[in-house]
Amino acid sequence: MDLVIPHPRGLYCPPGDFFIDPRRGVQTAVITHAHSDHVAPGSGGYICSSRCAPLVRQRIGARFNIRPVEYGEKFRLGGCWVSLHPAGHILGSAQVRIEWRDEVWVVSGDYKRDPDPSCEPFEVVACDVFITETTFGSPLYQWRPGEEIAREVLAWRGQARECGRNCILYCYSLGKAQRLLAELGRLDAGVVYLHGAHLAPTIAYHEMGIPMAKFQLAGDASKRELIQGELVLAPPNARGTKWEASLGECETAFASGWMALANARRNKGYDRGFVISDHADWNSLLRTIRETGARRVIAMHGDAAALVQTLREQGLQAEELAEARAV
């Protein structure tokens, strides 16, 4: 029997009667991490890692019942033993291990293997069946160390500084921004400015003791001080807004794994692209699947065909997760 099946509301575990990252309200929701496409308000109870809990609360509000658990702590849901294990995606991100009778399934959630100073490193969890994300399911995507990218960002700022321009680096508010801040902090980058949307998650990271570069709100109306030649992190939806215009003449860039391909860099409309991702690259996907020892692999998110085919050639039982249509 499959311990995890697709359901219109998300991934469902029948013997445990709970959902993983449901898209709508359910009775019991196990949350892998606090990105908006993984947490929806309206559920009766939320279970997530203890460091994920403040971020989930920020996302859905404090009125919901959120139960934080420690990594590795086993708890009972229905007939299953469930535990959460670090996924290395963002702070508090978790894989979900489900044990029922003799079978162990692991749902990876989003994960990466590259070192990241802003979150817990990925933990390999042995299992029979591994449900893996495949956001970047092609050998074209192979990441370089975050530190190298941070050095490139600083070189970019240096160049723009000579011309008195600000650099706006567009990146997602939760996770990517803090990872960049943490990498930049290690390189003594000085003060990095933030768009308002980045502030709350960054403060949450700071309160949980993640060392990061000094940060400050850009365009703080109360201070009205103009910045010049500085690095500003902002969410992609601030592109082309009045806020952007208020920073004067700017250079823009986007930080994402998608920036690996020249076509994406050309078409996204940013001056340049930095290739940095919080998802597993091709080699990490293969390595992780090998290390879990899983005999069956179910791939979800993104274009999984190439990965599934490759795994089959290696003699594994591999399939794409069938999407359940909303009813």
Binding site: S138, P139, A260, L261, A262
Partner: peptide, 16 residues
């Protein structure tokens, strides 16, 4: 498959 995604064999070789 990589060439199909990238559109440029030169880029695929460089990346992989």
């Amino acid at each position: 498959d990589c060439i199909r995604r990238s559109g440029d064999i030169a880029e695929v070789i460089a990346l992989t």
